[in-house]
Design a binder for these strands. Sequence first.
DNA 1: CTTACGATGTGTGCACCGTTTACATTAAGG
DNA 2: CCTTAATGTAAACGGTGCACACATCGTAAG
Lengths: 207, 207
Amino acid sequence: MSPESGSYHHGDLRAACVRAARELLEEDGSAALSLRAVARRAGVSPTAPYRHYADRDALLSAVAAQGYRELAEHLAAAHPAPTTPEELAAVAIAYVRFALEHPALFRVMFAEPCDPTSEERLAATAAISEYVRGIVRTVFPGADADALSTTVWALVHGLAFLHLDGKLDTSSPEVVADQVGAAVRALFTASPTLSQAAAAHSEQAEK
Amino acid sequence: MSPESGSYHHGDLRAACVRAARELLEEDGSAALSLRAVARRAGVSPTAPYRHYADRDALLSAVAAQGYRELAEHLAAAHPAPTTPEELAAVAIAYVRFALEHPALFRVMFAEPCDPTSEERLAATAAISEYVRGIVRTVFPGADADALSTTVWALVHGLAFLHLDGKLDTSSPEVVADQVGAAVRALFTASPTLSQAAAAHSEQAEK
DNA sequence: CTTACGATGTGTGCACCGTTTACATTAAGG
DNA sequence: CCTTAATGTAAACGGTGCACACATCGTAAG
């Protein structure tokens, strides 16, 4: 795929850019990704990436999209098809751990107001959203799947960000895991009342 | 306080900088705040702010700290001393609304990995954390206040960010309010089981 | 009143950044 | 072989954070 270095054409600069970007993000945790630095890392002139990405935002969106895919894999690795609250808690813990293991990437994925009209991004986030909804539907058939999946996603997402910003105890992975687990378990045991609340909400909406 | 313009010295540049920064953040929602733009807005040379702030991060921290204080006021305005789940839900809704009304400021407050060892910042975030903990203790005396306040904060914080990133339905403030309210209510009706889970967690920790 | 001083704002300069514009190289197809 | 479109390069513009030397001014000691 990538021929011996020295050739004028790179071979697959498009992919090499996101790879270089990923490496830079992992190396220095800062989310301040420089297009020029990416170009340098890829061994190419500063403006070469513009042949493949309209602007910095476009590259960032591509990186974010790949991040979403990796996150999805990470979650699936934690448990392919959760059916119990405990298994879903494991997935939640994996979510937060991913954020803590790849802080810069996670920030690029979520904390940047970059172009939301990116086909790749929308597809990737929709996939995750659907994945969560599917789990919730399986584990918790009685409830409003939309509302509940949103709630559990928000809870886990908030835990991830608060940890990322040093607002919570991140001293050891065990502490983090316990906290996330407890929070998710609490949500799930609330199921009957939650579905009741969801029903009340629907009534309110249709009047 | 600020004398007639034309004087060499500004009078209170330190405060003027955060004011200018706030204005710029409100005007264009982008969280990309330029120190030079702040200086221009304050009617001062590009490097003048360095007399009062060590670097860009320091200014951002000051802005973030003020943001925390405003957020605290906003929450207190929603309800000064919540004692019921419904009142706490109102506070939660105010939290998310603040994020949606001041997106750029909210991003500076949370989504920037800026200097976490800022005295002002730490104090401000500690104040909010303590505020939430106090409410939880009042509304829900039986439970582990630390764990539960973290959980409710994370839930609300996650909702705020998902809304900010366009991952959820932000079409009308009512929709947002309903969603946040339902989520918080669900959490609170889970109280007995949550305290039980917290107890189990404590046991686990001390063995 | 004078004078020295410290606090505050200015000007200059450097390295880096994103982006545009014109140009060079090369792979691929008629 | 020659044309063409794709791909990478070079040069340039305006913007940025920041370090340095310099200018201005309130103030307080002599």
